[in-house]
């Protein structure tokens, strides 16, 4: 049908003309969306496959239902009735990490939780993206000096977008998610800039005072995370 009308030089004039001729005058123009304007009635889209996939990923993100602290309340508000993140194709939260593309880290990460968060992040399928919500995920925020607080989510997992605030308003989180979609659509993802705290088997850890002290308490093959507070930013 429309393949009779070759697209020349990107102009859609001919297509539009054809369509207009078919529809005649006085017709309802609600079907004349911009997409239709661009494609005419052609069923073909020419694009690179990975570009297409990036567009799809950015436009249909499954978030992980993951609440930590104060920010999670604002995150719920972002999902809920007024701000409705679903409008931006960022979906209803998934309860299982295996079904999620994006993890929003909403709150302070402390020593006991970091290994669990790492585990949850590891369970997510590739490609995966991380939004750090709030000051605590940037630097530890107001609790930065605490003896138990990880100085930012980036110490544990790579973060794509940081949304500052304590807590950020829902609008700010929506903006952050929109920015993430933009990045995904452009095929960008965050380089890992620091060597994060890793889960490793206790037996593999370099011997030092703490390791020696704990040697009779922890099995060799237990997964553990070592915090070097003195090196923290």
């Amino acid at each position: 049908m429309s393949s009779d009308n070759p697209i020349d030089g990107g102009s859609t004039d001919m297509l539009t003309d054809t369509r207009d001729a078919r529809m005649g005058e006085g017709l309802d123009d609600r079907f004349n969306s911009r997409l239709r304007e661009a494609f005419g009635s052609s069923p073909f889209i020419l694009t690179k496959f990975d570009k297409f996939m990036n567009w799809v990923r950015g436009s249909s993100m499954f978030m992980l239902q993951f609440g930590i602290a104060c920010c999670s309340i604002e995150m719920i508000h972002t999902y809920a009735i007024k701000h409705d993140l679903d409008r931006f194709g960022a979906g209803i939260p998934r309860a299982s990490p295996r079904q999620a593309d994006v993890i929003i880290v909403p709150g302070t990460i402390v020593s006991k939780f970091a290994p669990r968060m790492k585990r949850v992040y590891d369970q997510m399928p590739e490609p995966k993206f991380v939004v750090g919500m709030g000051s605590c995920t940037i630097s530890g925020g107001p609790f930065q000096e605490g003896y138990n607080v990880i100085k930012g989510a980036e110490e544990v997992i790579p973060v794509d977008i940081h949304v500052p605030g304590c807590p950020p308003r829902p609008e700010a989180l929506v903006y952050g998610v929109a920015k993430l979609q933009e990045r995904i659509a452009n095929g960008e993802s965050s380089p890992v800039v620091v060597k994060p705290y890793e889960l490793e088997q206790f037996g593999d850890m370099e011997s030092d005072e703490v390791v020696d002290k704990l040697a009779d308490q922890i099995d060799e093959d237990t997964l553990a995370m070592r915090y070097n507070w003195a090196d923290s930013p």
Binding site: A114, R116, V210, Y227, W229
Partner: peptide, 14 residues
């Protein structure tokens, strides 16, 4: 006499 800078190890024994 707690030293906040001394390293700590946390296990993941689920």
């Amino acid at each position: 006499d707690y030293d906040q800078d001394s390293p700590q190890i946390v296990t993941l024994g689920e």
